[in-house]
Write a protein that binds this DNA or RNA. Sequence first.
DNA 1: AACTTATATGCAACTTAGTCGCAATGGCAA
DNA 2: TTGCCATTGCGACTAAGTTGCATATAAGTT
Lengths: 121, 121
Amino acid sequence: MQTKNIIEEKNLKLTSARKELLELFGFEKKPISFEDIKHKINMDKATFYRNVSKFESESILNSFESNDKKRYYEIQDFPHAHFICNNCNNIECLENMEPIKLEGYKIFDMIFKGICKSCNK
Amino acid sequence: MQTKNIIEEKNLKLTSARKELLELFGFEKKPISFEDIKHKINMDKATFYRNVSKFESESILNSFESNDKKRYYEIQDFPHAHFICNNCNNIECLENMEPIKLEGYKIFDMIFKGICKSCNK
DNA sequence: AACTTATATGCAACTTAGTCGCAATGGCAA
DNA sequence: TTGCCATTGCGACTAAGTTGCATATAAGTT
């Protein structure tokens, strides 16, 4: 979907900060934190955080807390688990995992921690 | 194991702060943060954090970051997953889960997020 | 194109978990 | 009992994220 349609659908204003963010999140293939992109973007950190919060409440983005006290955001498309490497700290999307069920619980998110494929070689 | 043996085994000094912490962690059945126990313990927060870090590097404790930007610690016994409830924020140990394997990865920790049994009723 | 108004932005001050340097304390071995 | 080195408390600091407020701007209306 186009950036413009995403925004209009939610009755938000299409500002340059929002264009910038949505293009960036659309381009990245993995979750990103403010730290990761602060040098690439042209807005105050308050604007970043206010927008990603709004996007999250409008179901445009997902987020989760990593090992490093930072929150990571990604476009909300199909649900998938994440792998956080204790060695290289990389965050990977696990797109081909069959969903896990737990009787009585609703699972929205799954995070695995350990040693990733590349570090495990 | 006795507190004293745990400490001596790792060549650490058995201070009153360490006794207090190990008894508390041994007593609690779920992961706890500094916030959770600061009113119960008799030590500076720097002492708390320095000790839990040391215990972690000596494989006495495990820890992980929750939703709330706080780190939670627990006695390292048998490996198990955790469930964090997005609604009541409670952290539960899932002791009866069969371990999940991912080809090429080493998994040390698993965190599920969603709605827990009690909130899902 | 100018007018209007609610929404969004930048800035600076604030909050809060956790860390660090340093001087004082206290376990423990000799 | 002594002495040394790990450990402690304290206060200052760090860094992610939040908030209040004055200003700017998107977008609908005239």
